[in-house]
C-alpha cells in the first residue's frame, strides 16, 4: 500500500517538474502583447501588512490635487479619512476639509451647501455624459474600488504561490505600472487622436493624458522627518497605496483579526487533536 503511494507521489512530482516549465513558456509567448508588470513592495502586503499612514496622506494629496479633477470616488466619505487604519487625519482636519467643498443637497435653499464629515466625496462631473464629453469620449473610472478591479498575472504556474503568500496587490502594481508606462509609440504604431500610448494599458492607447510628472506635487516635510523624493515613481506608489486603502479601508483591522483567529484555530486544532488521539488510543482502527 505504502509502496504504491510512494511510487504515485514520485510519479506525480516528476510529472509536475516536467510539465511546469512548459506552462511557463506559453505564458512568455503570450507576454509580448502585454509586458509583465513588476511587483512593487507594499507596506500592506502579506499577512502582517499595514497601511503606512504617511504614504496614505501623500497619496491623498496626489488624489486631491491631481486625480480628483476628473475621477470621482463616490463611495468615499470625508469621515473615512479620520477612521482607524486610514490616513489618520484628525476629526477637526476632516471637518475643515469637508467645509472647503460644496456638496449638492436638494433640501437646502440653493441646492448647495458646504460639506460635512458625513458627506461623500463630491464628483467632478454631474453625470456620466458630462464626464464623457469633457474627456474625449472616455469616462474616467470611479476610484472607490478601482484598485481591486485591476490585477496582474503571473507567468506560468506562479499564480499558485499567491494562495500561500496571500498576494492581493496586483491592483496597486498595475496602477503604478500604468502611471509609469507612458512612452513614445514604437515605430509603426498609430495612436488615435486624443489618445496616448501606454505600455501597460490593454490595447496600449489610453484616453488619459500622462497625469503626473516629476515635481508635479509638492509634499510638505514635517519636522524631523526625511523628505520623500518628488518623483513620478514616488507619486504613483503613493496614489496607488491610497487607492488600495479607498478600496479596502478595513485591511489593517481585518488582517489583525485574522492573525488572532488563525492563532486561536491552531491552538484549538491542537487541543482537538489531543482529545481525539486520547479517545481513539483505546480503539484499534
Amino acid at each position: 500500500m505504502t509502496k504504491v503511494k510512494t511510487v504515485f507521489a514520485a510519479f506525480a512530482t516528476a510529472a509536475t517538474l516536467i510539465v511546469a516549465p512548459a506552462f511557463g513558456q506559453e505564458a512568455e509567448a503570450d507576454s509580448h502583447a502585454q509586458p509583465q508588470i513588476e511587483a512593487q513592495s507594499w507596506s500592506f502586503a502579506g499577512p502582517f501588512g499595514k497601511y503606512d499612514e504617511h504614504q496614505l496622506q501623500r497619496g491623498f494629496q496626489v488624489f486631491r490635487e491631481v486625480c480628483s479633477g476628473c475621477h470621482s470616488a463616490r463611495l468615499i466619505a470625508f469621515r473615512n479619512l479620520s477612521e482607524e487604519g486610514g490616513p489618520g487625519f484628525t476629526e477637526e482636519q476632516v471637518k475643515a476639509l469637508a467645509a472647503e467643498y460644496q456638496v449638492t443637497d436638494p433640501s437646502v435653499a440653493e441646492g448647495q451647501r458646504p460639506g460635512v464629515a458625513a458627506d461623500y466625496w463630491p464628483s467632478p462631473f454631474a453625470s456620466e455624459q458630462e464626464a464623457r464629453d469633457a474627456n474625449g469620449g472616455a469616462v474616467p473610472p470611479d476610484f472607490s474600488v478601482l484598485a481591486k478591479a485591476r490585477g496582474t498575472t503571473q507567468p506560468g504556474l506562479w499564480w499558485v504561490l499567491n494562495y500561500f503568500t496571500a498576494f492581493q496587490e496586483g491592483g496597486p502594481d498595475y496602477i503604478h505600472a500604468l502611471l509609469n508606462g507612458y512612452e513614445e509609440p514604437p515605430q509603426g504604431t498609430e495612436v488615435p487622436e486624443g489618445k496616448y500610448y501606454n505600455n501597460f494599458f490593454p490595447g496600449h492607447s489610453i484616453g488619459m493624458a500622462p497625469p503626473l510628472s516629476d515635481g508635479a506635487v509638492t509634499y510638505e516635510v514635517a519636522e524631523g522627518e526625511q523628505a520623500v523624493p518628488l518623483t513620478l515613481d514616488q507619486y504613483s506608489k503613493d496614489v496607488a497605496a491610497f487607492m488600495m486603502w479607498a478600496a479596502e479601508p478595513h485591511l489593517n483591522s481585518r488582517k489583525a483579526a485574522g492573525f488572532r483567529v488563525i492563532l486561536f484555530l491552531l491552538v484549538f486544532a491542537g487541543l482537538m487533536w489531543m482529545t481525539k488521539s486520547k479517545l481513539w488510543s483505546r480503539v484499534k482502527h
Binding site: A149, A166, K255, A257, F259
Partner: peptide
C-alpha cells in the same frame, strides 16, 4: 484554518478583479 486564511488575509483572491466593476 485555510478558510480563515483566505477570509482574513486574501478575501478576493478566489474571485475576479472584473467583479469590482
Amino acid at each position: 484554518i485555510p478558510f480563515a486564511w483566505f477570509v482574513f488575509m486574501a478575501p478576493d483572491i478566489l474571485g475576479h478583479p472584473d467583479n469590482y466593476v
